[in-house]
Amino acid sequence: MNKDRDMNIVVLPGDGAGPEVSAEAVKCLELLSDHCGLDLRFETLDFGGAAIDTAGSPLPDSTLAACKGADAVLMGAVGGPRWDGRPEMPEAGLLKLRRALGLFANLRPARVIPGLEALSPLRADVAEGADVLVVRELTGGVYFGERTFSEEAASDLCVYSRAEIERIAHVAFQAARRRGRKVTSVDKANVMATSKLWRRTVVEVAEQYPGVALDHMYVDAAAMALVTNPRRFDVILTENMFGDILSDELSVIGGSIGLLGSASVGETGPGLFEPIHGSAIDIAGLDIANPSGAIASAAMMLEHLGLADMGHILGEALRKTLLAGCRTADLGGSARCSEFGETVREYLRRRLVHYDVHLELVTMNRGCCA
Score class of each variant (00 low, 15 high):
64 L>N: 07
319 R>I: 12
142 V>C: 03
272 L>F: 04
87 P>C: 00
205 V>A: 06
128 E>C: 13
93 G>Y: 04
217 M>S: 09
46 D>E: 07
158 C>S: 06
179 R>I: 05
295 I>R: 04
19 P>R: 09
194 T>H: 10
65 A>F: 12
236 I>P: 04
199 R>F: 07
268 T>D: 13
318 L>I: 07
309 D>K: 07
16 G>D: 09
361 L>Y: 07
192 M>W: 03
14 G>N: 06
308 A>C: 04
70 A>M: 09
285 G>R: 05
114 P>T: 04
361 L>G: 03
185 S>A: 15
35 H>G: 08
346 E>T: 14
19 P>E: 12
359 L>E: 12
100 A>S: 14
332 G>H: 04
70 A>Q: 06
228 T>R: 02
132 V>Y: 00
363 T>H: 14
133 L>G: 00
266 G>C: 14
99 R>K: 15
93 G>T: 11
152 E>W: 01
19 P>M: 10
95 L>C: 09
168 I>K: 02
200 R>E: 15
2 N>P: 04
164 E>K: 07
121 P>Y: 11
327 R>S: 06
251 S>M: 09
288 I>H: 03
316 E>H: 15
104 F>N: 10
195 S>I: 14
125 D>E: 15
254 G>Q: 08
33 S>F: 03
333 G>I: 01
357 V>Y: 10
74 L>C: 13
339 E>Q: 15
36 C>I: 01
130 A>M: 10
125 D>V: 09
16 G>V: 07
263 A>T: 11
235 V>D: 01
60 P>C: 15
105 A>D: 05
257 I>V: 11
62 S>C: 12
187 D>Y: 06
200 R>I: 12
169 A>W: 10
289 A>G: 11
212 V>W: 09
332 G>F: 02
332 G>D: 08
252 V>Y: 12
56 G>P: 06
216 H>I: 05
150 S>K: 06
138 L>E: 13
315 G>H: 04
6 D>C: 03
38 L>A: 08
208 Q>K: 14
119 L>N: 13
268 T>K: 15
199 R>N: 10
273 F>D: 02
36 C>W: 01
292 S>P: 00
147 R>H: 07
14 G>T: 06
247 S>K: 02
17 A>N: 00
363 T>Q: 15
195 S>D: 11
311 G>E: 01
308 A>P: 02
316 E>S: 12
89 M>A: 14
45 L>I: 06
69 G>I: 01
274 E>I: 12
317 A>H: 06
363 T>C: 08
297 S>V: 02
239 E>W: 10
36 C>P: 10
8 N>Y: 01
162 R>Y: 01
356 D>Q: 11
239 E>I: 07
345 R>F: 14
222 A>P: 08
291 P>C: 08
47 F>Q: 12
319 R>H: 13
228 T>F: 08
225 A>D: 15
230 P>Q: 02
134 V>H: 00
65 A>V: 03
331 L>F: 02
208 Q>M: 11
198 W>A: 04
311 G>H: 00
121 P>K: 09
153 A>G: 03
345 R>D: 07
321 T>L: 05
16 G>F: 03
277 H>A: 05
229 N>E: 15
340 F>M: 14
